[in-house]
């Protein structure tokens, strides 16, 4: 061991510990679009948080100015058909969008990941049942499922989230199932089995961490889809109920007044579009950063 010891002694030990995650983080920071999108989303979260304690005006205060007022210095985005401040309502609407977007994806992860992992890792009859259920859910139109559920459960934020999850969990389950199926054939998973790992450890210690990249991307890209779906439901009038503002219901009200108060539809639409774009750019950035195939 003499020479080895000598080598150890003379070679400084580099402190750097480059995990694949820190590698991905470095690549993500280099992506301009994703960076700008992240900053926008952080601001959006900040706005939503602020709006829980402060808005320029009370968002449900009726007639604080004239109805259909165009933007002014006092009301930066003008007022709506009841003379409510649009900026205040937009800020509160951000809460709704974020809760719906993030909330559904958390539930989608909670449902889709375990189902996908079990089906993909164990295969056999379990997989067949899961695949069957997934296909059944895909067979029913999204809107129908969501509207029926909202009608049965009643329109509330919680029930809308449940309705969206019911139409979205299959994407995640299917993705995770595919990942688990390909990862279980990899040698390091076999090595884990040889090392005596129990099934729980196999699933959550080896398979899940290695599937996390695509899962994160899918979840991130699922957020705008959910936000859009909520906006659509609210636009149709089966979403969050007044007076709680949602960008979707605000756009709906705006469309009716599009002839004489176009700012009513423009403001929520731009907020919605920017947010959707930001999540999509972030999702794409994450995909590029996390996808090992883009690695040289």
């Amino acid at each position: 061991m003499a020479t080895a010891a000598a080598v150890v002694a003379v070679r400084p030990i580099e402190p750097e510990q480059a995990s694949l995650w820190s590698d991905a983080w470095r690549r993500l920071r280099r992506n301009r679009f994703a960076l700008v999108a992240s900053i926008y989303l952080l601001l959006l979260v900040a706005v939503a948080l602020i709006s829980t304690v402060w808005t320029p005006y009370r968002m449900s205060a009726v007639g604080i100015t004239e109805t259909y007022a165009p933007p002014t210095a006092a009301h930066l985005l003008g007022s709506d058909e009841l003379g409510r401040d649009i900026l205040s309502r937009l800020m509160v609407g951000a809460q709704v969008s974020l809760i719906v977007g993030v909330g559904t994806q958390i539930l989608v992860l909670a449902v889709g990941v375990p189902i996908g992992l079990l089906a993909g890792y164990y295969r056999g009859w379990l997989d067949q049942i899961v695949t069957f259920i997934i296909n059944v859910f895909y067979g029913i139109p999204d809107l129908l499922v969501a509207m029926i559920l909202v009608f049965i459960l009643g329109p509330s934020l919680r029930n809308i989230i449940i309705a969206i999850v019911a139409t979205r969990w299959m994407d995640m389950a299917r993705l995770v199932r595919g990942q688990a199926m390909s990862l279980r054939e990899r040698e390091f998973v076999e090595a884990g089995r040889a090392a005596g790992a129990r099934p729980i450890k196999m699933l959550f210690g080896h398979i899940l961490p290695n599937a996390l990249g695509p899962i994160i991307v899918q979840a991130t890209l699922g957020i705008p889809a959910a936000i859009l779906f909520e906006a659509f439901l609210s636009f149709l009038g089966v979403g969050v109920q007044p007076p709680t503002p949602s960008w979707g219901s605000m756009a709906n009200e705006g469309v009716m007044a599009i002839q004489y108060a176009p700012h009513m539809v423009i403001a929520p639409s731009i907020a919605l579009s920017l947010t959707l774009m930001a999540f999509n750019f972030l999702g794409d950035g994450l995909r590029d950063a996390l996808d090992p195939r883009s690695r040289r």
Partner: peptide, 16 residues
């Protein structure tokens, strides 16, 4: 045939 074994020029002595 470790590095420098034959010539006597060993690693610990040469890498500062």
């Amino acid at each position: 045939i470790s590095p420098g074994a034959a010539s006597g020029l060993k690693p610990g002595e040469i890498i500062p």
